[in-house]
């Protein structure tokens, strides 16, 4: 090895001598650059040469497509050379398999999946009517019927968006509607099914408890109503949900402060029952300190803090982190 070591020392000496002069450094930099460029270029050419010699380039080449996909750049036309007018199209609803006009698909799907503002009312109506045996309204309500409601509520819907954003306005709307005798149908929600959320006030404690294993249940300050989203509802925190249930137990015998509760059944889900019961059970056992990227939409606001670090998040929770900006985009 000493042979090598000697040569290394010699090299280092020569190097120091060389770089002591700044003009040498510049000249050397230039030369080294040129060498590197030569070598990189050689490498690129080798890549091509190799793929040609090994046949990969042929394999890659294949038979070109004969159709032209050239972009069209003419006024009044889109890039495909088509006119800029909307043609009507149909699609098959994945939920019910019916054919639906594409431009009304979202509306349809909402009702179809039982999520719309009207869905609960329609469902309640259905239940109420089937038990009263009114032939005209039994079975599936036609889409047209719903559309009438739709346009009415659209007009009324002047975004009363409060701090908790988009969903709340949905709930507030039903306040209008329920008290509004002018709406189509005019059925009264409250005569519906005994243990449904709309009848919360009159339910027994056991039933309330049962209900609260299925829905978020937090009372909105603004609308005084229970949130009927799932237990994973991002708008409210686990603490709030716990409080709510604790409240129920505490005022079990006494007079509850739930007199003014008005329940919106928009988002009540049947299916989540077991999962949600499990979730509730787990709360007492673990405090999750993990943040998910879906939780932490970063914000400059220092008053909001992630769930992980500050457990006293005072009802802001995820809601404050996620921008509740909900610009309305009306369709066409």
């Amino acid at each position: 090895m000493s042979g090598i070591d000697e040569r290394v020392d010699e090299l280092n000496k020569k190097f120091l001598e060389f770089v002591s002069k700044p003009e040498n450094v510049d000249a050397a930099s230039k030369e080294i650059y040129e060498d590197l460029l030569d070598e990189v270029m050689m490498g690129f050419v080798f890549d091509v040469h190799r793929t040609v010699k090994t046949g990969s380039s042929d394999v890659e080449e294949g038979i070109p497509d004969d159709e032209s996909y050239a972009i069209v750049d003419l006024p009044g036309l889109d890039v495909f050379g088509q006119q800029a007018i909307k043609k009507s199209q149909d699609c098959a609803c994945p939920n019910c398999d019916r054919g639906v006009a594409a431009c009304r698909f979202a509306t349809h799907l909402e009702k179809c999946m039982g999520m719309g503002r009207n869905s609960s009312r329609i469902a309640s109506r259905r239940i109420a009517n089937s038990s009263k045996d009114l032939s005209t309204l039994s079975g599936v309500l036609s889409d047209d019927d719903d559309d009438v409601d739709w346009s009415l509520t659209n007009d009324k819907r002047k975004r009363r968006k409060d701090r908790n954003g988009l969903k709340k306005s949905k709930q507030s709307k039903s306040v209008h509607r329920n008290g509004d005798t002018g709406s189509a149908g005019g059925e009264n929600n409250h005569t519906s099914n005994e243990n449904s959320p709309s009848n919360y006030e009159n339910m027994s404690v056991e039933d309330k408890r049962a209900l609260l294993t299925q829905i978020c249940g937090v009372v909105s300050e603004h609308t005084k109503k229970l949130c009927t989203r799932s237990m994973r509802c991002p708008q409210h925190t686990d603490d709030q949900r716990k409080d709510m249930r604790a409240n129920l137990e505490a005022t079990n015998n006494g007079h509850s402060n739930q007199d003014n509760l008005h329940v919106d059944v928009d988002t009540y889900e049947e299916g989540d029952g077991q999962n949600l019961r499990d979730a509730l059970a787990r709360w007492d056992l673990e405090v999750s300190s993990h943040s998910s990227p879906a939780d932490s939409a970063s914000t400059t606001s220092t008053s909001s803090s992630s769930r992980k670090r500050d457990s006293k998040s005072k009802g802001k929770g995820k809601g404050s982190k996620r921008d509740r900006g909900s610009p309305i985009s009306q369709g066409d």
Partner: peptide, 13 residues
Amino acid sequence: RHLAGYEQQDAHE
């Protein structure tokens, strides 16, 4: 589920 519904959504959300 929390997103569901015909009402306009925020693109960011």
